[in-house]
């Protein structure tokens, strides 16, 4: 893929997005519901015309060369776009034929991809009877039929349970190993970290940060230390105390009242140790200590100073995203 630049003037969904993805790399686009991720993918896959601005994918302009472009891309939508009434094999065979594979080649390709995505046993069953994970795998297989050089994965694991999510991740990693350029949208920092080499964070149709994964992680504080004192009344004084010490540097400590814990952004193991030491020095008994990757909310908090602008501040389980025209 050559350069990929976008400008959008008018639309609320995308308000001037510039993006460039290196050939053979995985670009993660991280953002909450309604940030414009799906709109971005739909424009890049020629499903939606841009209001303004221009974009090229694999050297083809999305507006003036849609047919050529469609030949080199694969698309896996947010809501699995397989035909539920068709058996898995027929789904793949259909796509093969639509991509102008001769009958024999389309048959062979369908067999091959079912095998690769461990769906051979379910080949003859309607896709509607598949489990969520199987359906995503079939969807991935369908987008691989034409051996695309650019692959769009629009929230490939939203709504999946953790184990199935890992399965899908493994498949995606294998695809990336084949040298495909991937544009991945996600609401999960963890997913971005697993799959992407570079990350663009979007919010309300704007890019609010971009860079390498490690760079951004450092920016948002790498990890989050979750400290839970035995006595919840100590939460606020502790938070003030820690901020006063300034150990964490980049972002301030958040109090999670509901779960009775402090969320401390940390950059290093030294900071982790220092924070725990500072807390115990206050004579606080700790009920639990754990570290986790920052959630999308925390990423946003540290990058923008406000919470992710999800319509109802929803949990990232709601798969639908507003697509403005």
């Amino acid at each position: 893929m050559r350069g990929l630049v976008k400008h959008y003037g008018e639309t609320k969904a995308l308000d001037g997005v510039d993006l460039e993805v290196r050939e053979g790399s995985v670009m993660g686009v991280l953002g909450p519901n309604g940030a414009g991720k799906t709109t971005l993918v739909r424009i890049l896959s020629t499903l939606l015309p841009p209001t303004a601005g221009q974009a090229t994918v694999a050297g083809y302009d999305v507006v003036s060369q849609p047919r050529q472009l469609r030949r080199v891309i694969g698309l896996t939508g947010q809501y699995a776009s397989v035909d539920e009434k068709l058996p898995g094999w027929e789904n793949l065979y259909l796509i093969g034929r639509l991509l102008d594979l001769p009958r024999k080649a389309a048959r062979a390709r369908a067999d091959e991809l079912l095998e690769r995505f461990s769906l051979t046993d379910a080949a003859k069953r309607p896709a509607g009877t598949y489990s969520g994970g199987m359906r995503r795998r079939l969807d991935l297989a369908a987008s691989m039929i034409g051996r695309p050089s650019v692959l769009f994965l629009d929230e490939p694991t939203t709504g999946l349970d953790p184990r199935t999510r890992n399965e899908v991740w493994d498949e995606v990693k294998a695809m990336v190993g084949d040298g495909v350029t991937v544009l991945l949208t996600t609401q999960y920092m963890e997913e971005a970290e697993q799959l992407a080499s570079e990350l663009t964070v979007v919010d309300r149709g704007k890019v609010i940060a971009k860079g390498g994964i490690d760079e951004l992680k450092a920016k948002v504080g790498g990890r989050t230390l979750r400290v839970k004192p035995a006595d919840p009344l100590r939460l606020r004084p502790l938070a003030a105390h820690l901020d006063g010490l300034g150990i964490t540097g980049l972002a301030t400590t958040t109090v999670d009242v509901e779960r009775g814990a402090l969320l401390v952004p940390i950059l290093s193991d030294e900071q982790l140790t220092a924070v725990v030491a500072a807390v115990t020095a206050q004579g606080v008994t700790l009920a639990s200590v754990s570290t986790e990757l920052p959630s999308l909310d925390e990423v946003f908090l540290s990058l923008t100073g406000h919470r992710a602008s999800t319509p109802q501040d929803a949990e990232p389980t709601d798969a639908r995203e507003e697509v403005a025209v």
Binding site: R70, S81, V82, D83, L99, D100
Partner: peptide, 13 residues
């Protein structure tokens, strides 16, 4: 209204 139309529309047909 099913996602499969998006797939068709993203194919060179």
């Amino acid at each position: 209204n099913s996602g499969v139309m998006d797939r068709f529309r993203s194919l060179p047909i």
